[in-house]
C-alpha cells in the first residue's frame, strides 16, 4: 500500500477571469491600427502604350477640345487664352454643343477633351485643371439625370442594378484624353 501514489487533486480548468481583459487589449490594438476610410481621388484611365506600326485615329478637329497648360499655370483652350476657373463652362459648352457653334463638338458622345501640360507645371495645378474638366462632365450628367429621373447622377447610378444600362453615361461618355507628353 505505501507504493500507491497519492493523487494530488488539481483542478483542470483554465482561469477565464482575465479573458475579457485580453480581448480588450486586442480590441484596443485593432481599434488604434484600423483605417476604415477608403482612398479617394480622381479616377482616370491612362492611354495604352503606342506601338510602332499603329495608326493614330483621326478625330474631327471640332470634336476635340485642346486644353494646354504651361509651366506658369496659364491655360490655352483651343488656342484661346483663359484661366482655370473658366475651363468648366467651356468644357460644358463643348459637350452640350450638338453642332450649334462651329468650333465645338458635333454631339456629346463624340466630344473629346484632350489635356496636356508642360513638364514644369506643379502637380497642384494639374489636379486643379483635371478637376475642372471632370466637374464639367459630372455637372452635365447631373443635369441630365435630374431632368430625366429627378435625382442627381450619383443617386441614379446607385439605384441601377448590375445589368441595367447606364443611359446617362452612355449618352455623355467621359472622354478625357491624357495627351502624349512632350519630351522637353
Amino acid at each position: 500500500m505505501p507504493l500507491l501514489k497519492q493523487r494530488v487533486k488539481r483542478d483542470a480548468e483554465i482561469p477565464s477571469a482575465s479573458m475579457a481583459d485580453i480581448a480588450f487589449l486586442l480590441l484596443i490594438f485593432f481599434l488604434v491600427t484600423t483605417t476604415i476610410d477608403a482612398d479617394k481621388g480622381i479616377y482616370m484611365q491612362l492611354p495604352p502604350p503606342i506601338e510602332d506600326d499603329q495608326d493614330i485615329p483621326e478625330i474631327n478637329q471640332r470634336n476635340l477640345l485642346n486644353v494646354l497648360v504651361n509651366a506658369d499655370g496659364q491655360v490655352l483652350l483651343d488656342n484661346e487664352v483663359t484661366n482655370v476657373a473658366a475651363i468648366r463652362d467651356i468644357v460644358k459648352r463643348h459637350i452640350l454643343n450638338n453642332g450649334r457653334e462651329p468650333q465645338f463638338s458635333l454631339s456629346p458622345d463624340k466630344a473629346v477633351t484632350s489635356f496636356k501640360t508642360k513638364r514644369g507645371l506643379p502637380y497642384v495645378t494639374y489636379i486643379e485643371v483635371l478637376d475642372e474638366i471632370k466637374s464639367a462632365y459630372n455637372e452635365v450628367r447631373d443635369e441630365a439625370a435630374r431632368q430625366e429621373f429627378g435625382t442627381d447622377y450619383g443617386t441614379y447610378k446607385a439605384r441601377l442594378g448590375d445589368d441595367d444600362p447606364d443611359v446617362i453615361a452612355d449618352r455623355y461618355p467621359l472622354k478625357i484624353s491624357l495627351a502624349e507628353p512632350d519630351p522637353d
Binding site: 482612398d39 491612362l46 492611354p47 507645371l121 502637380y123
Partner: peptide, 26 residues
C-alpha cells in the same frame, strides 16, 4: 509641389506595364 514632368515619366512606365487604371489621390 512636384513638377508634372516626373509624374509623366512614371505614367509612361505604368503605360508600358499596361497598368492603365490610375487614381490621382486627393
Amino acid at each position: 509641389d512636384v513638377e508634372t514632368g516626373l509624374l509623366y515619366d512614371v505614367q509612361q512606365e505604368l503605360r508600358e506595364a499596361e497598368a492603365l487604371r490610375v487614381n490621382y489621390s486627393t
